[in-house]
């Protein structure tokens, strides 16, 4: 049953299971799967999957994300953000591309980073 749930990643570096409550700021470097509760910021250089029973009471910052749970905080995603029908987000969203399933609840601003801005940003780094 568990393995089916985690088909999202080839490799998961952190799994916060259903019976787990994390208090404090979580800073990771890889892919994160959340099924439990986080009371603090979630930041990772990898991707995040927030399952339908998960609850996050702070900001989420990641490369890409698939959200099916509840977030009370801002969501900042560098690449693609996928919002599932079970998701409930109370906070602002910032991402490059987005897909939202019917039934999702979003209360907040949504800002899309323009393609032009990304090109300029990459050029500066090169």
């Amino acid at each position: 049953m568990f393995n089916k749930k985690n088909e999202n990643f080839e490799k998961a570096d952190t799994i916060i299971g259903q019976a787990i409550k994390v208090k404090g700021n979580f800073n990771g470097h890889g892919n994160v799967i959340v099924e439990g509760i986080i009371e603090g910021n979630l930041k990772t250089s990898g991707s995040v999957v927030i399952n339908d029973k998960a609850k996050i009471f702070a900001n989420v910052d990641a490369k890409s994300a698939k959200i099916g749970g509840e977030i009370n905080g801002n969501v900042k995603i560098t690449n693609h953000l996928q919002i599932m029908s079970s998701a409930k987000i109370v906070g602002d969203i910032e991402c490059s591309s987005i897909s939202i399933e019917q039934g999702a609840i979003i209360n907040g601003k949504c800002v899309m980073a323009s393609e032009q801005k990304h090109v300029t940003h990459n050029t500066e780094h090169n």
Partner: peptide
């Protein structure tokens, strides 16, 4: 690695949850 078990009223229907951190 944390393995927890949520017991159900129905016998043999308990749910195993796994967590993993580095």
């Amino acid at each position: 690695y944390i393995q927890t078990k949520k017991h159900s009223l129905i016998k043999f229907n308990s749910q195993i949850n796994q967590s993993f951190f580095s």
